[in-house]
């Protein structure tokens, strides 16, 4: 069982700019894949391609396993509904509609005392923790993480990382982020996303070295662009007029 992206090309701005060019990526069930990429390289779009919510591409995608939505996604939550109602919606959607599911999510998120409260009336930490817990409580073959494992308070982040590390070996993860350290803490295979392609690295140190080097290049490029924007015009009016 796998998700297989074959020769994926994505263009935008009416085809003038290319995000991916003949990108190939295969994720097997049970694999722990990290995708390291600097900002604006298309990490979130790649995750959308993996889970099947991006339609605008050329190429072929074969998917014969259940893929989650990115855990940090929580726009399905209704603020005027209770936590239990929001959890039940996902339960119904994924075919796990029972009270045990509500309790399980409440326990993972550490928010059991708020289950019958409206989400809008709950403290701020509840929402990100709930988003993580709802996703992880449903049995998917691959869980997706976009940018970070979870939001919420520091203790919960540690708890969540522990849960991800101890996931059943048959369950895989795909974690896309620009934080190399966070990726390497829970992934076995690293891909580096750069200029529309992904390159696989078995050796973590080698991957980190390369990732830092392209980060340096990107930073230099941004600095040059900024300098060009901020630099005063070469010729002032007096020179143009020949005075």
């Amino acid at each position: 069982m796998s998700v297989d992206l074959q020769n994926i090309t994505m263009r935008f701005a009416g085809g003038r700019q290319t995000l991916f060019e003949n990108l190939n990526l295969r994720v097997e069930a049970g694999e722990r894949v990290g995708i390291a990429g600097h900002p604006k390289t298309g990490k979130s779009t790649l995750l959308r391609l993996i889970c099947g919510t991006e339609y605008n591409y050329e190429g072929r995608i074969d998917r014969d396993l259940r893929v989650s939505w990115p855990t940090t996604f929580g726009d399905y939550l209704v603020m005027s509904s209770t936590l239990a109602t929001n959890i039940r919606f996902i339960g119904r959607l994924c075919g796990v509609n029972n009270d045990d599911f509500v309790r399980k999510v409440g326990e993972i998120a550490g928010v059991t005392e708020f289950l019958n409260e409206e989400l809008g009336n709950c403290p701020r930490f509840v929402r990100p923790q709930l988003q993580f817990a709802i996703t992880i409580a449903v049995e998917f073959d691959i869980y997706l993480f976009d940018d970070t494992i979870t939001g919420g308070d520091k203790d919960f982040k540690e708890k969540a990382l522990g849960l991800v590390r101890t996931l059943d070996p048959s369950r895989g993860i795909v974690f896309a982020s620009s934080n190399f350290k966070e990726i390497s803490s829970c992934c076995d295979t690293i891909y580096i996303l750069d200029k529309g392609h992904v390159a696989r690295y078995e050796n973590l140190k080698e991957a980190e070295k390369y990732f830092k080097s392209i980060g340096q290049q990107t930073a230099e490029k941004v600095a040059v662009q900024r300098e060009m924007v901020e630099r005063p015009p070469q010729e002032d009016f007096t020179s143009v007029l020949g005075i």
Partner: peptide, 21 residues
């Protein structure tokens, strides 16, 4: 079956969120 599940979940969500305030 999965399609029916999705439609049931979404329809109930529509009903619950409509005028829920």
């Amino acid at each position: 079956q999965a399609q029916l599940r999705v439609l049931t979940a979404l329809t109930l969500r529509e009903m619950q969120s409509q005028n829920s305030s």
